[in-house]
């Protein structure tokens, strides 16, 4: 499944990085601790977080995640969105909380 299909199925709002909607999704990772994501997330995963500041994009880019999902209707800060566009890594948003969106994501792509 790619990011665009995921966006449609989970009714996510596309905040930025639209050019990366074709990225294939290879799994998911959830954490708000940046070092945890840095140390453990894998390329191609969707990262669910509530952090919205620019540093999430440094992590997303270095780890080459497929996309970021922000929970509880959070939106990226302006400079975060700009890097998301430059790096072509989509930032998506959901009104759901982490538990609910993780469950739905797992149903779609978990085993």
């Amino acid at each position: 499944m790619n990011v665009k299909e995921l966006t449609d199925k989970l009714e996510l709002t596309i905040c930025s990085g639209e050019q990366g909607l074709t990225h294939e999704i290879k799994g998911g990772y959830i954490s708000d601790l940046l070092s945890d994501v840095m140390g453990n997330a894998k390329e191609g995963q969707v990262w669910i977080t509530l952090q919205t500041h620019k540093n999430i994009m440094a992590i997303a880019s270095l780890k080459e995640v497929a996309a970021i999902i922000l929970v509880k209707s959070r939106k990226p800060e302006q400079d975060t969105a700009e890097v998301s566009n430059d790096e072509q890594i989509p930032i998506l948003s959901t009104p759901l909380d982490t538990f609910e969106i993780a469950g739905r994501l797992y149903k779609l792509i978990g085993d």
């Binding site: 708000d32 601790l33 940046l34 070092s35 945890d36 840095m38 140390g39 977080t49 952090q51 500041h53 540093n55 999430i56």
Partner: peptide
């Protein structure tokens, strides 16, 4: 901001 979890140096050592 999500930093300062005390994982930085251990992450460096592992990698």
């Amino acid at each position: 901001m999500g930093f300062g979890a005390g994982m930085g140096l251990p992450n460096i050592k592992k990698n």
